[in-house]
Design a protein around this nucleic acid. Structure first.
Length: 484
DNA sequence: TTTTGAGTTGTTCGA
DNA sequence: GTCGAACAACTCAAA
């Protein structure tokens, strides 16, 4: 005798709390079958990179454990997704399939096909908003078009938004009479064969519990100084919630609720300001999803037409030096090595290294986006795309072309004691503060005392920033209508 | 329809 | 050392 069941198709929502699809299945009654289907080629060309796969493995493991505690299990299958869902629903008298939406163009298309395939089958399919404060199609300006400028977008959202209370965490799920087969998590081979993930492992605690712990820690220790310390890469001044948000181990709605609670408890103008500065970052996440939804070609194409003829360099040796953290600019190299080691980079440093690749080296933002995609544990198509287009100046609402970060002054301003640089570039550790961001200018005696031999133990700068800046300004001005 | 004001995160130069 | 202005042109949003 088969029991009637609902499938809950887990995707980028690896949590039990505040999960609309899961709640819908519970509400419907009958058994709940939690399913994860691994089908990376359906996300092509943005299938999860190495760091993301590592995180995904840990998250699934954590979700398995959480489900076990509430009388349930995670069924793991491989794609093609449609076939996997059809097979499961055939074998287990499935009445409904529920999932939370994703917004990547390839996923939207695939999900639409899946919905289509089940229509008329007698199986209900329903998707929910489990990742955003507002669905992208509900936000538009007065002429009915999507916003392209952040400030206007976020002002509009703040005025209209009333995020609901987060949904509860289920205590117990109804099981089927008999569990479907499941693959072993290890058989998905998400973890790297070569052991390069140890640095990531020691930096992070993936999963829903890790997410909550991180949020609590941030609210308790870092939010009060957020406006200032978020820019200092040697301190834990940022929220570090990005990977949790990407994998749906935490929702913006939960963050919103936690912040509101805290603001109500404290209520000082200062705390409200710090909270709003942080919430603006959540606003950027919303904005990036809004843009990706309305301009689905964004991951590959510049939003501004005229950038299609930008003279990017093909410079594999520059790209490689940047990737390896061997550019000769300490703050850039420190950032790239932090990324490689921990799967994450401080936001301030992301801007610096991105500006360096795009403006000093004149290498296309797409190359940068691809590298970040493979190495970041928080790699998110919407956020990564907007971040790079913003830096390159080819988004509608972008950094002005003349804003070229100076890697030395940025380093001296935001890492004045060189703690960050010394941590990730230990060969520079013994240089005095004064020279730690510009070793090539240090007196030879000092270099020797610090055990540093330029071009042997640490590279000379691969480009001269002052000259590179001039070249970049020239290249960018070639885009203006007057000149061309 | 036309007009106006504004636009995340900077740097440099010269007074 | 500090401060304000210049750095383009363009597009978006809203009046």
């Amino acid at each position: 005798m088969k029991t009637s069941a609902s499938l809950v198709w887990f995707r980028s929502d690896l949590r039990l709390s505040d999960n609309p699809a899961l709640q819908a299945a519970i509400k419907r009654g009958g058994a709940v079958l939690p399913v994860f289907i691994y089908a990376p080629n359906e996300e092509d060309p943005w299938a999860p990179g190495g760091a993301s796969r590592w995180w995904l493995h840990q998250s699934l493991k954590s979700l398995q454990a959480s489900l076990l505690k509430i009388n349930s299990r995670l069924i793991i299958r491989r794609g093609p997704t449609l076939e996997a869902l059809q097979e499961l629903s055939r074998d287990y008298k499935t009445e409904a399939i529920f999932w939370n939406r994703r917004y990547e163009p390839a996923i939207i298309k695939r999900d639409a096909k899946i919905k289509e395939a089940f229509s008329g089958s007698g199986i209900l399919t329903e998707s929910f908003n489990g990742a955003l404060l507002n669905e992208p199609w509900t936000i538009h300006n007065q002429s009915g078009k999507p916003f392209q400028v952040f400030t206007a977008f976020w002002r509009h959202c703040l005025a209209k938004m009333q995020p609901a209370e987060p949904l509860p965490t289920p205590r117990k799920l109804a099981r089927p009479n008999r569990w479907p087969n499941s693959l072993l998590l290890d058989s998905l081979e998400l973890e790297p064969r070569i052991k390069w993930a140890e640095g990531i492992r020691s930096a992070w605690r993936p999963g829903e519990l890790g997410a909550r712990a991180q949020l609590d820690h941030f609210l308790k220790y870092s939010l009060s100084g957020y406006g200032e310390t978020r820019n200092l890469p040697d301190r834990p001044g940022t929220s570090r919630l990005s990977p949790y948000l990407h994998f749906g181990e935490m929702t913006p709605r939960q963050i919103w609720a936690a912040m509101r609670e805290k603001a109500e408890a404290e209520g000082t103008p200062q705390s409200v300001w710090q909270a709003s500065t942080f919430l603006t970052e959540i606003g950027w996440r919303e904005f990036s999803h809004h843009l990706l939804f309305h301009f689905p070609h964004m991951p590959e194409m510049p939003l501004r037409e005229n950038f299609k003829r930008f003279p990017w360099r093909k410079a594999p040796e520059f790209l490689r030096a940047w990737q390896k953290g061997l550019t000769g600019y300490p703050i850039v190299d420190a950032g790239m090595r932090e990324l490689w080691t921990t799967g994450w980079m401080h936001n301030r440093v992301r801007m610096i290294v991105a500006s360096f690749l795009v403006k000093d080296l004149l290498v296309s933002w797409l190359e940068g986006a691809r590298w970040f995609w493979d190495t970041l544990v928080d790699a998110d198509l919407a956020q990564n795309t907007l971040g790079w287009q913003w830096t390159a100046g080819c988004a509608a609402d972008a950094a002005p072309y003349f804003r070229v970060f100076n890697p030395v002054s940025q380093g001296e301003k935001f890492d004045p004691q060189g703690n960050y640089v010394r941590k990730w570039c230990p060969e520079l550790a013994r240089l005095p503060d004064k020279w730690v961001h510009r070793p090539w200018e240090a007196p030879p005696m000092l270099l020797e005392e610090a055990g540093l031999e330029l071009d042997r133990t640490y590279p000379e700068p691969i480009v001269n920033h002052t000259i590179a800046r001039e070249v970049a300004l020239e290249a960018f001005s070639s885009l203006s209508a007057k000149q061309r």
